[in-house]
């Protein structure tokens, strides 16, 4: 009884603390949506805040004045025509490239054993210590376009590496976890295979298993369904939805696939290669219904215009 009470106490305390910090975060000026869809406030916990960033390779500006927020639990779609800088934006979000201007802020729960410090914390990725960056990156899971599995290692070893780098688990525990993750993506029994021995679709799924290895808060997918047949692509979408449901991760997806955008996306940003900035922001389904911008509608209807809808 005493135990139960104590447990309850801690739980309430943490809930109060959480509400407190959420309200604090609520005060931060969130950039206005260009195409506004007001979600209920309870769903809006900013998880990634992109503040006015400019992306450039040397003097060549790719995109500028990007300003958006990815909320917790969102499946956030980055869309736009070929060559508009979608993948570059993803590289910025995962910390592979430094923005030429602006800040990217992540809102993470610092997992400290001490209760007092177990609270939401904002980390400005490019303005923090290397150690903090490393801890933040531990919360990232990334599925690369080609899978990017380490070709000199078996699938199980691929998934085991992040676990070995960040946990003190014994090797048998790690292998068990690796097997579980492989089973989750439908690759049970493929532990001992090398990436070169399996098909492209399987490599993608194995990449997903590796991205999930540390149960990350942030998942980033670079064109997950590119090169997959429609049924496999659909299965991957289902898997992504399932992941969000079960792990509560925030998911950022770069994709061209209209069907998958509407099926899974809850929020999005539309990048335009000509004006070199974002021209729409919001739920893709909502954008399709209410956007006035011809470029957005054209994109979302395969260039067939509004009457098709």
């Amino acid at each position: 009884m005493l135990w139960g009470f104590k447990h309850l106490d801690i739980k309430t305390a943490s809930i109060t603390l959480k509400n407190l910090t959420e309200r604090e975060i609520g005060d931060i000026k969130v950039p206005p949506d260009l195409t506004v869809k007001n979600l209920p406030d309870s769903m809006k916990t900013p998880h990634i805040i992109v503040k006015n960033i400019t992306m450039a390779y040397g003097d060549l500006v790719i995109q500028q004045n990007l300003d958006f927020t990815v909320n917790k639990g969102d499946i956030f779609i980055i869309m736009g025509g070929s060559g508009c800088g979608k993948s570059t934006l993803l590289r910025h979000l995962v910390g592979l490239q430094k923005p030429a201007k602006g800040d990217i802020i992540y809102n993470v729960l610092s997992k400290n054993s001490d209760l007092e410090q177990n609270r939401q914390k904002e980390i400005n990725f490019w303005n923090t210590s290397a150690e903090e960056q490393r801890l933040l990156m531990k919360n990232f899971g990334i599925l690369y376009q080609s899978g990017a599995l380490w070709s000199s290692m078996t699938l199980a070893e691929n998934i085991a590496l992040p676990l070995e780098a960040y946990t003190d688990l014994s090797s048998s525990q790690i292998m068990e976890l690796a097997s579980l993750k492989l089973a989750l993506v439908g690759l049970a029994g493929f532990e001992g295979y090398y990436p070169s021995e399996i098909s492209g679709g399987m490599r993608k799924r194995a990449g997903l298993a590796r991205a999930m290895a540390l149960d990350p808060d942030f998942l980033f997918f670079d064109e997950p369904s590119a090169g997959l047949d429609p049924v496999s692509a659909r299965l991957l979408d289902d898997l992504i939805l399932e992941l969000r449901q079960s792990f509560g991760s925030t998911i950022v997806v770069v994709t061209h696939e209209l069907a998958s955008m509407f099926a899974i996306g809850t929020n999005s940003v539309f990048l335009d290669p000509v004006t070199k900035t974002m021209i729409a922001h919001g739920d893709p389904k909502y954008l399709l219904e209410s956007s006035k911008d011809e470029r957005v509608i054209n994109f979302l209807t395969r260039g067939e215009g509004k009457q098709i809808v």
Binding site: R91, V94, G95, L96, Q133, R134, L135, M137, K138, F140, I142, Y144, Q145, S146, A148, L149, W150, S151, L161, P162, A165, Y166, R210
Partner: peptide
């Protein structure tokens, strides 16, 4: 093959 990126983003 983006494998080095995959290492970097794992920290």
């Amino acid at each position: 093959n983006e494998e080095i990126d995959a290492l970097k983003t794992l920290g």
